[in-house]
Nucleic acid binder design. Structure first.
Lengths: 261, 261
DNA sequence: CGTTTGGTTTCACTATTTGAAACTTAGTCT
DNA sequence: AGACTAAGTTTCAAATAGTGAAACCAAACG
């Protein structure tokens, strides 16, 4: 097996290469990719050729560099508007942003990581990590923990296995045990805190977005700074956040089965 | 539409399936896909399984439907922010929208079709076809013709081969010859018109976005309606549009090779 | 209940993929 | 210039992975 185990078949490898190109923020040369991939030269070459031919990558003939292709941009639009909760949640996020004046995050779970799918900036914006389209750790963010807490056992297990438990701040829950205890507490409380566990000075209150059958669809959070507010104040908003999460869930579900008649 | 020829290898087929899922605006069932794909049952099944396993699709276990997955959303975001001109062009589009008060389109070429990568709505919006993330025909849109006009011979040939030359309106240039003559005129004039060639009542003025080496990176257009303005009035804006296109090109290029020194 | 519909698995057959190595440019260094 | 080097492209027999008709299973139907 290679670096990561899960490259099943040619398709897996091709997608792996796609990810590699995506992860560099700029066009990359063949040899750069060759250096970090552990595919043989010829294999990598053919994969790149196929992807380029398919429009998933673009080869700039002048510089000999590969970049993500337009076909992905096209898929992007489709992905955004159908797979994620974003389009449904949009008006609710606006509402929540208006009500709280704080930063709002909408996230979904991506193989044990948190994917931020939409975001509203605070009235007075603050620099912080999360951005729409970015991924972050699950074990030390509000939205991440909110989702983990409601995952079914096997899914939780799979997600836990992918956590690095890196200690970002003194408050980070940097062990499986600490996290499990916290998840228990979250289930009882109904919402998750982030007590400066990922970034110093950043706190948040997050709730899961659950389907009627209890499946985790995503999470919603209100984020602020210790300079501006306290956990208690944020907690006062929890019922409203939960309420909005419920509305999003309801609408997302009715969306899923139209045209059935 | 249907069986496109160019599905090279397994990767091609898998991506083809991805597109199929994307093209439905909602989660699809296996059998729906089976009906429109001309892959045998087992093959389609395995492709879907692979894609799902890879996180490019999600299988909703409750409804047995496939939707685009989070990994795709992540890639899509990366594609948007690095491959496309959109992030660079954003402030310029805002400026142009403010100046003209009309609808602005930013497009790139995607295998002979036009891909709208960003858009600004007119002060008084009008219903029209184009939308960010959508694709449209190249031979009968302003941005399409602006790009075609500056394509190198082989690329132009490849693009022409993919045009359907469907006559959308009485003004559509519905033949290869008519289009070639028009492209010639566009090169001389420096910008392209859309004289209600795609949608009745919709006119536009478009300019290509060219790299220093003359490579076509995209196109920019200002669109309006015959009810509101005339080609002449739109034409008066051409210098400004061209100016902004040049700025975008310049910035896009400086973006492409940093860290090199 | 027997039947249909929708989804999953099998398995012999084949076509695709593989990757070491040879080859081709295009640059660099004496 | 010629000899070396680095970067990208092509080859080809062996190995692997993909194919798809058909069998199978499980709900849902009548």
């Amino acid at each position: 097996m290679g670096a990561e185990g899960h490259a099943d078949g040619t398709v897996g490898k091709a997608l792996d290469v796609l990810d590699m190109v995506a992860s560099h923020g700029r066009p990359v040369r063949f040899s750069d990719l060759l250096a970090e991939a552990d595919y043989p030269k010829a294999t990598l070459y053919r994969l790149l050729q196929t992807l380029t031919h398919q429009g998933m990558l673009t080869l700039d003939p002048d510089t000999g560099t590969y970049a993500l292709g337009v076909r992905l941009v096209r898929l992007a639009h489709a992905a955004w508007s159908q797979s994620s909760l974003a389009p449904i949640a949009r008006p609710y996020l606006d509402e929540l942003a208006r009500e709280t004046g704080e930063t709002i995050h909408l996230a979904q779970m991506d193989l044990g990581q948190v994917l931020y799918v939409d975001k509203r900036n605070a009235a007075k914006p603050v620099e912080m990590f999360a951005q729409a389209g970015k991924v972050g750790p699950a074990y030390c963010t509000g939205v991440g923990k909110a989702m983990l807490a409601y995952l079914p056992p096997e899914a939780l297990e799979a997600a836990l296995a992918r956590q690095s438990f890196h200690r970002f701040t003194p408050h980070t829950l940097a062990s499986r045990e600490a996290l499990l205890t916290e998840l228990q507490a979250i289930r009882q409380r109904g919402h998750a805190w982030d007590r400066e566990e990922h970034e110093a000075g950043i706190i948040c209150c997050a709730v899961p977005i659950l389907s009627r059958q209890g499946r985790v669809m995503g999470a919603l959070s209100v984020t602020s700074t210790t300079a501006r507010t306290t956990l208690e104040d944020l907690g006062a908003q929890a019922p409203m956040i939960r309420d909005i999460a419920a509305k999003i869930a309801a609408e997302a579900e009715s969306w899923r089965f139209p045209e059935q008649v």
